[in-house]
Design a protein around this nucleic acid. Sequence first.
DNA 1: TTCCACTCTGGATTCTACTCTGGATTCCGC
DNA 2: GCGGAATCCAGAGTAGAATCCAGAGTGGAA
Lengths: 149, 149
Amino acid sequence: MRPRGQEYTIGVLSQYSGVNIETIRYYEKIGIMPSPPRSNGGYRLYRDSQLRRLSFIRRSRQLGFSLKDIRRLLGIVDDKSYTCAQVQQVALEQLDTIRRKIIDLQKLETVLNDMAADCSGGLVPDCPVIDSLFEQNGDNDLILTKEAK
Amino acid sequence: MRPRGQEYTIGVLSQYSGVNIETIRYYEKIGIMPSPPRSNGGYRLYRDSQLRRLSFIRRSRQLGFSLKDIRRLLGIVDDKSYTCAQVQQVALEQLDTIRRKIIDLQKLETVLNDMAADCSGGLVPDCPVIDSLFEQNGDNDLILTKEAK
DNA sequence: TTCCACTCTGGATTCTACTCTGGATTCCGC
DNA sequence: GCGGAATCCAGAGTAGAATCCAGAGTGGAA
């Protein structure tokens, strides 16, 4: 079924977003995607804002956020009743996580980059490379110990 | 049980790494952590290199890598029999993923940052903010459609 | 030399996040 | 207006990752 006007069916949304149809319905069931309006026949009808939201969810999943995290993030957008302080708190907390993720990824990037380069330079990768990858962060780990369940 | 010399028990490793004891044994069972030497009584005895490896796994999980991905990454370090070309291929493939993740996280960082700032500036967060978060990437999504299962 | 926290094993269970099934309904090109 | 594709729904099933459990053994402090 083709998009009609600005609206499209779940199949089209699935294609555009790269998210499985079943998964979209699942997201609706658990409440992180809203129930969209329906056609006369009961088909879900989506618009661009839903596509963006869904893409956001998909990417966030790929970035290692749980559905719980994502629900929280989306919550600060959805629920206008949050106070500013609350919005800020959630935002800042998540920022913390995000920045740590960026740093870790950058480290990983460097290591892999070096590894590929050494290799193409004909060096046998003599690797305790990854072994020493997150070496500097022992401190961090210790701090995090409690938090970890 | 305290650390003895350079070695420590699984409980201590768990504390330092923030990874559950059960999970550590599970990682050993599935082969992404090596079987450590044992004490006379059969207790696992770990050293720093294992702590680093475990931290690496934990962080990678938080970054959205599957255990399969991680196994692959660690594989290029562990198995000296990989050819240079293979090492390079894995490294370059992962680099791609990693760079995309970094970019997405940076976008997210900007949005949340703005949100927190607006808020502290006394603005009511008038948000289709996240709604428009990954707006630019529709193209990407279309390209990715096929890949998505 | 006992006590209690810690660890062992192997198997069962749980949790999260989907994914599938199947029978009914709707849509739409021919 | 018919047939095949798309969608609906409820509920069951699955994969991956982790966590729990029971019963037995270990180790070190008092």
